[in-house]
Nucleic acid binder design. Structure first.
Lengths: 332, 332
DNA sequence: TTGAAAGCGCTAACAC
DNA sequence: GTGTTAGCGCTTTCAA
C-alpha cells in the first residue's frame, strides 16, 4: 500500500505538496501544472490510497457513522431490512462507512454508549424500538458534540431530531381506505392506542358509528398471528355483523384472514381486510393482503441525510414521513 | 475525551507507562502495585477511552471487519437478515466493529474492491449471491494479505475459505421427510438443479420411482410465488395423482398451497407440502408450512469466527453447515 | 521500575 | 511554488 511518502519520494518532492495537490487544497498558492499532472499520474500508477486511520487521527473526521438498531417489527415484516437498506444506499452515495450494531435484548441496546465513540464515528443513528429511558444518555452524548438522529416512530426529546411517522395517520389511512371501498361496519384490533385513535378518527370523519363490540383489545402490543386469530374468533363470536377489519400488523391480518376463510367468509366480498407494514408476504397470502407501509427505506435515507447535515454543522428539524397505502385483493 | 496524555499528566508520570499498564503489556518488567492501581483508577475516573484511530495507525490493526452482501433470497425470506444477525452477534462478542455494505445491483458488488481497504478493516466477509467472476479480484485482494472468508452456498475457489451449505442435501432432506411422513408420489418444483438432485437421491434411496410428470421445470431460478402457482396448476392438470410437493422456496410452497386449497385439496391429508428457507411467515400460512432452513445465523457466526482466526494468522478450512428441518402442519 | 523517543500516515500553518 | 515542522494519540524499543 503506497503512502504519501512513497509518492513524494518517487517524484523527489515533499509530502505536503503531494497532499495539497491530491486534496485540491492549495489555499492561495499554486503549483506548476506539469508537476500537478505528474503527481496525479504517479499516485494513480502507484495505486496510492489514503489511509483513513491517519486522516481520522489528523482531522478528527472519520467518514463513518454508527447505526444502532433495536430490532423491531415482527420477524419477516421487513421493517429493519427497509431501514437498513435506506441508510445503506444513502451512505454509499455520500461515501460514508457505516458501522452497524444490532440489538435483540434491551441491555445490549442500553450499552450503546460504550460503543459510540467520537474517535470512531462522526455521528450516530439510533432506530427501531424507541427507548425513552435513553434520553439522558443521548443528551449527554449529544452534549459531547456527537451528532445524533433518531429513527423512532416519534421524537423522544425536543433536542433530538427524529424521523418519525404518524401512527395515528396510519390507522386513519387504513380505515378510511376500507370505508372508501364500501365497508360500513369495520372491526379493529388494538395494539398501539394511537393507531386506534386514527381508526376512530376515520369513522368520525365519515359519520360512521363506533361499535365497541368490533374493537378487540388484549392490552399490550403483540401484533402476532395468534392475536389476529383470537380477534377474528372474537368478532365472529360477537354475532355482530362486520364487513371490514383493520389489523395493526400484516401478521395479525393473516391470522384474521385464515380464521375468516376457514369459517366460510369470503374476502373481500364479505369482509375486507387490511394490515400494516406492507411485509413482503402480503403478496402471497391466500388472498393477497392490502397494507399500509411505514416507508422504512425512505425514512432510513432521510435520517442519514439529516445526520450528514448535522455533521456538517447545519441545523435540522424533525420530520414525519407519511404512511403509504398498498392496495391488493383483500380490499378489492 | 481524555487521552493517555491527560491521564499521565494527572499522575505526573510518562505516557508509555500508562499505556503499558492499561494494556497489561509490561513485558519482562513490572510496576509498583500501588502505581498500577492509581493508573487504573485515574483512567476510569477520567473516563479514558482509547482512540481507535490512533491504535489503528500505530498497530495497523483496526478491530473492524467489512461485510459485503449481495442481497439474495426472496424479500421476506429472512436469508440476509439471518446472516447479518449471525455475523453481528459474533462481532459484538469479539469486540469487532462491523462495516456493512449492501448491494442490489451487480456493478455495485463488483466495485467492492474500491471499498475494501487494509487501512480500514482487518478482514472481509463476502456473502449472498455467489459471484464467480470475482475470483480474480478476490485472489488479488487476498494476495495483498487481506483475510477473506466467503459465505456463498459453495466455495468459488479452493484458495478462498467458505462457509457453504449443501444444496443437494437440502433437497434430499425435504423429500425424505415427506417420505417418512408417508407420502409416496412426490412432486417437485425445480429451480436449483442440485436440490433436484437431492430430491432424486431421496427417491432412489427409498426405492421410489421418479415420475417425470411430477417434476415441474421452467428453467432459470425464480423461487417465486407465481412459479409455485403455475407448478401446482401443472400438477393438477397432469391428472397424475400426487400426495406430496417439495418446493424450493417457501414462497413457491405458498403458491402451491393456495392453488391446492382453492382446488379443494386438503393439506396435509391429501398432499403434504414442504418449502425451503424457513421464512418467518411459514408460521402463519393458512396451513403452517414445514420448511428446511439454511441456518443463516449459524453460518454468519461461523464465518466471522473463521475470519478472526485468519486475521490472527491461523489457517482455516472451508466448512459446510447442514440444513435443518422445521416441521409444521403442512407435513403433519 | 520508569521514561524518552521514534514512528504509524496524514494535514495545515508557516517559512522560504 | 515548494518545503519544514508540529501534531493527531497510541505502541514499542531501548535506555536509564
Amino acid at each position: 500500500m503506497a503512502s504519501l511518502n512513497d509518492v513524494a519520494n518517487e517524484l523527489g518532492i515533499s509530502i505536503s505538496l503531494v497532499s495539497k495537490v491530491l486534496n485540491g487544497r492549495m489555499g492561495t498558492t499554486g503549483a506548476r501544472p506539469e508537476l500537478i499532472e505528474a503527481i496525479r499520474r504517479t499516485a494513480a500508477e502507484m495505486n496510492y490510497q489514503k489511509n483513513p486511520a491517519a486522516v481520522a487521527l489528523s482531522q478528527g473526521r472519520h467518514n463513518a457513522i454508527g447505526i444502532f438498531i433495536h430490532s423491531f417489527g415482527r420477524p419477516g415484516s421487513g421493517n429493519v431490512d427497509a431501514l437498513l437498506h435506506g441508510v445503506s444506499s444513502e451512505a454509499r452515495q455520500k461515501n460514508q462507512r457505516f458501522i452497524l450494531d444490532f440489538f435483540e435484548r434491551e441491555e445490549e441496546f442500553l450499552a450503546f454508549n460504550d460503543i459510540t465513540n467520537k474517535s470512531i464515528m462522526d455521528g450516530v443513528l439510533l432506530g427501531g424500538l424507541p427507548h425513552e429511558e435513553l434520553v439522558e444518555a443521548l443528551l449527554e452524548l449529544k452534549a459531547s458534540s456527537m451528532p445524533i438522529v433518531t429513527i423512532f416512530d416519534k421524537q423522544i426529546n425536543p433536542l433530538l431530531p427524529n424521523v418519525s411517522f404518524d401512527q395515528v395517520e396510519m390507522g386513519r389511512m387504513a380505515t378510511d381506505h376500507l370505508i372508501q371501498q364500501g365497508s360500513r361496519k369495520i372491526a379493529h384490533i388494538v395494539d398501539f392506542e394511537e393507531r386506534c385513535e386514527g381508526y376512530c378518527n376515520a369513522l368520525i370523519q365519515n359519520d360512521m358509528p363506533l361499535n365497541g363490540k368490533l374493537v378487540y383489545r388484549e392490552g399490550g402490543e403483540d401484533f402476532s398471528y395468534a392475536r389476529g386469530r383470537r380477534a377474528a374468533q372474537f368478532f365472529l363470536d360477537s354475532k355482530t355483523s362486520f364487513d371490514g377489519v383493520v389489523a395493526q400488523s400484516d401478521e395479525e391480518a393473516m391470522g384474521v384472514m385464515n380464521v375468516l376463510l376457514a369459517a366460510g367468509v369470503r374476502i373481500p366480498d364479505d369482509v375486507r381486510i387490511i394490515g400494516m407494514d406492507n411485509a413482503p408476504y402480503c403478496d402471497f397470502a391466500g388472498v393477497s393482503l392490502s397494507s399500509v407501509s411505514q416507508n422504512g427505506v425512505q425514512r432510513g435515507r432521510l435520517a442519514l441525510k439529516m445526520l450528514m447535515a448535522l455533521i456538517d454543522g447545519e441545523t435540522v428539524e424533525s420530520v414525519s414521513i407519511p404512511p403509504e397505502l398498498f392496495v391488493r385483493e383483500s380490499t378489492g
